[in-house]
């Protein structure tokens, strides 16, 4: 549905995107993951048709992305773009009108969206009285007023409470089940892992890997074991694989985790070393990113 071919973008001397190519299937939830400054927001703004001065091409259903296609896109920016002294309904009307929705249809759609974002009872209240999470939800609602088929979300859960986060996840799952295509940019790996079926890792303006979440986990995430004990040290572990310090213990990466666990238990029994905790660690996207870049996402 959405195709990006060799997209390049410079800000003066700084190269924000370098030959980025992606194919985003219709109806999928596609995660864009990378650290701050990786180029996610630039790519998102190109896809939302805000940035036009780039090289390469972006196509929606084989049509070159331009102003005429904006009605198909709902863009949810990282910033909360709401008018603080206007009511929730007033803000929704504003964005609805920008897409040419009027009169009864506008009011009806605003009510539907308010219900969707769980703010029906606050429709007449000014935004300045809302919590951060409520503002985030309404920020998403504003992009849904014109019922877009492609929804582009740029860090939609930054700085919100768990309740609102859960609400947003439910909303996204609802949009997915309706067949909307969603692009979800975030640096929260656990969110991407939960919501997205495809993911592209972006770092320093380049797509370093892309694919379905399960494929990437299988391909790149090395199984690991977490071990903690008062006398467990590097001497004990170095014979079984590479390891790093984590949460007062060690994270041991090995291709044969079960064998390694068995051997560690045996070794500790023989040498009367107590083990407080020993567990198999389920591979995560965070580990994929670490494998690919050699650095953690939040570094």
């Amino acid at each position: 549905m959405l195709k990006i071919n060799n997209v390049k973008k410079h800000y003066g001397e700084i190269q924000a995107l370098h030959e980025v190519s992606l194919f985003i299937p219709k109806g999928s939830c596609y995660g864009l993951v990378g650290p701050n400054g990786a180029g996610k927001s630039t790519l998102i703004k190109i896809l939302a048709s805000i940035i036009h001065d780039y090289k390469g091409e972006a196509l929606i259903d084989e049509n070159v992305l331009n102003r005429g296609l904006k009605e198909q896109i709902g863009y949810i920016p990282q910033d909360i773009c709401l008018e603080e002294d206007i009511s929730a309904a007033g803000n929704l009307y504003f964005f609805g009108r920008l897409y040419g929705i009027k009169g009864k249809v506008l009011r009806q759609r605003a009510q539907e969206v308010l219900q969707l974002v769980g703010l029906s009872e606050r429709s007449k209240d000014k935004i300045s009285t809302f919590s951060g999470g409520m503002k985030r939800r309404l920020n998403i609602g504003c992009a849904l007023m014109h019922d877009p088929k492609l929804i582009i979300m740029d860090e939609p859960t930054v700085g919100i409470d768990p309740q609102s986060r859960r609400y947003i996840f439910q909303m996204i799952e609802g949009l997915k089940s309706k067949g909307c295509t969603i692009i979800y940019a975030s640096h929260y790996m656990e969110e991407v892992e939960r919501l997205c079926d495809h993911v592209a890792f972006i770092d320093k303006g380049e797509i370093i890997e892309k694919g379905s979440v399960s494929e990437l986990l299988q391909k790149f995430a090395i199984p690991s074991i977490f071990i903690r004990g008062s006398h467990i040290n590097s001497e004990v572990l170095e014979q079984y694989g590479s390891f790093i310090n984590k949460n007062d213990g060690y994270l041991l990466s090995t291709q044969e985790p079960l064998n390694a666990m068995e051997n560690i238990i045996k070794y500790c029994r023989q040498n009367k070393i107590d083990i407080d905790r020993l567990e198999l660690v389920h591979p995560r996207l965070e580990d994929v990113f670490f494998t690919l870049t050699g650095s953690s996402l939040r570094e």
Partner: peptide, 14 residues
């Protein structure tokens, strides 16, 4: 500064 210009630029308004 609050991102409204960018947000409006994503809509069909010229």
């Amino acid at each position: 500064d609050k991102g409204m210009t960018t947000r409006v630029a994503s809509t069909p308004i010229s």
